[in-house]
């Protein structure tokens, strides 16, 4: 439960970082999207139902902090989540280099889906080439930033597990 809450708060933290105007103007050459690597992480290491709720939360936050139609990112993140779930069953996702490839693939898929949805709504969101270029560079840049952000999640997870083990032992001893 605590871990679930931590990931939910961490998601909020990531969104706040990526919407910060100061960081976006001076630090980031292209707006990163931490929700995609986080969706991948959640899908790999969380139970499907918990993960689904977390991804819905991330999508909801994206909808809240963006000027799009409410629900568009919730839908997109759920699609990505399902895609990774299927991929997880098909591929042996232990190799970290493969993770990079999958994350880039998720960025591409996300952009293509947005392009498709925009097309359905009768809007034009750039040409396919621009979309592919933008999504690849955004994906790569987000991946680089994720290398700075995600070790914190791992460290917190390890600390959390150790504390949980200690508490469990303590309860056993008391009994």
């Amino acid at each position: 439960m605590w871990w679930f809450l931590f990931l939910a708060i961490f998601g909020l933290f990531c969104i706040v970082i990526q919407t910060n105007p100061i960081l976006n103007c001076y630090l980031f050459p292209i707006k990163p999207d931490f929700t995609i690597p986080l969706t991948f992480y959640i899908c790999l290491f969380q139970k499907p139902v918990q993960g689904c709720f977390l991804v819905m939360w991330l999508g909801f936050l994206m909808d809240l902090f963006s000027g799009g139609i409410m629900g568009i990112f919730l839908f997109l993140r759920l699609v990505l989540f399902c895609f990774v779930l299927i991929l997880k069953k098909l591929l042996f996702l232990e190799n970290k280099l493969l993770w990079v490839g999958v994350i880039l693939l998720l960025f591409l898929l996300d952009s293509l889906l947005i392009h498709l949805l925009f097309g359905l709504m009768g809007k034009n969101w750039g040409t396919l080439v621009i979309i592919l270029k933008t999504s690849v560079s955004q994906g790569f840049f987000t991946f680089l930033l994720s290398l700075l952000v995600f070790p914190f999640v791992n460290k917190f997870e390890n600390a959390y597990k150790r504390t949980a083990d200690k508490i469990g032992l303590w309860i056993l001893i008391k009994k």
Binding site: I15, K31, D33, G68, T134, Q138
Partner: peptide, 15 residues
């Protein structure tokens, strides 16, 4: 005061 930019690349908004 502007406190945030759009969370995605697809839309143009700020908070």
């Amino acid at each position: 005061e502007v406190v945030g930019v759009d969370a995605s690349l697809s839309f143009e908004s700020f908070s």
